[in-house]
Design a protein around this nucleic acid. Sequence first.
DNA 1: CTGTCCCTTATGTTTGGACATATCACGAGA
DNA 2: TCTCGTGATATGTCCAAACATAAGGGACAG
Lengths: 233, 233
Amino acid sequence: MPRPARVSYHDIKRAVTSRIQSRIWPQGTLLPTEAQLCAEFGCARATVSRALRELSDQGVVTRKRKSGTRVAILPPERARLDIPVTHRTVEDMGAAYTYALISRAEVATPAWLTAAIGAQENAPALHLTALHSADGAPFQLEERWILIAAVPNVREADFAAITPTEWLLAEVPFNDAEIAFSAIPADGNLPSLLNAAPGAPLFRLERTTWLEGAPVTRVHMTYRPGYQMRARY
Amino acid sequence: MPRPARVSYHDIKRAVTSRIQSRIWPQGTLLPTEAQLCAEFGCARATVSRALRELSDQGVVTRKRKSGTRVAILPPERARLDIPVTHRTVEDMGAAYTYALISRAEVATPAWLTAAIGAQENAPALHLTALHSADGAPFQLEERWILIAAVPNVREADFAAITPTEWLLAEVPFNDAEIAFSAIPADGNLPSLLNAAPGAPLFRLERTTWLEGAPVTRVHMTYRPGYQMRARY
DNA sequence: CTGTCCCTTATGTTTGGACATATCACGAGA
DNA sequence: TCTCGTGATATGTCCAAACATAAGGGACAG
């Protein structure tokens, strides 16, 4: 098989993954050193290095100085999940997106929340609920707390005109976030707002974001009955 | 501010993210070219290039040949989710892990499945159900179909001794996978097996994997009531 | 036998240089 | 006016060389 005039790091990635998948290098195997590989492929060490670094980022191999590079044991099923803003999710389904603010109030952060995110007791927060709809049918209910200390100008934001998610993305940088997925029963005002049978299972995404270690906002996004969140990898 | 003798691509990443977060470069801004940046930081273009490439991988900036590098508009909320094998999930909770095979049978792939994953009609499959427990309490119910054509030696596998996930990870490479999360009601045998109230909301993860475009296996993993799947990013 | 020091080795990073390639912008020709 | 080329430009990739750094392993002393 003729090899291209110049060997790309893509070629090396392909060759290595192929040997791993065909069990030429079973899991746990120590693979040749960068120097050996670049001799084999006839390219610079930087090229091999980049290929192996990217495979390491993907979790296909693990690398350690001096020890060398090994085929990862139990590839840790790593999925990259893109969570677009609801606006886009709905439009990608080919539906018309509409948004309505349901409630807005300044409150003291509830105790369960301060404990969960590491905020000060009774820190003032803006509490919002909003409904995102697809073709007029309820799609997602958003319940959000924004810590006013973290974003003082949130008081001036007009959340009837722009969704909290989009306002925050535009106004507030954040370093760190945590998400959690769970299944919850439709209770409280969920059945009527999301057009669900009482007690019906609903998919919920919770996200908390921090800036420099200080909590900024927490959101609960509860989807309409039957919603599935998907990802490929 | 004194700068280190040699500038690392980490320094550049920090400097760039800092300018983005502090709104010196608001979203959509075209940032200086690599050549300009490496003049500013006093380093080689390859160093700037690596920094910007990694920021691009993280979704912080978007790059296009000739056009240049821009601060990403609406950073697409990209989460990397690590889904360890159940074995590890349970042990990471500090609980004792046990596993039991509940049923094993060769069946024709059900029609809804062939349609969903692109398999042949009535393709023979191995159908398994198994229960994963933490400290003796049901933790996750696994229901799996393995296409025998894709993995002929699955007939010899002893799934009483090893979990299907771990056997497959060790035996079968795969290129491509899709996962979906949803909330489902506890019905059928779920209430008794997972110790859930009938109709209670349960979190479910579905995963399908392919090898060279041919489906290999589909699994439904249903978690005990109240389970949350978490990720940081 | 055990702990310390040092040498070796494999990966990690930077450099300065070169060529490749996508694509924007502009100008000539239809 | 519109279309098609063509050059300029910013990113994409590769190279050869060098130094940095973590860590395994052996020599040596206690």
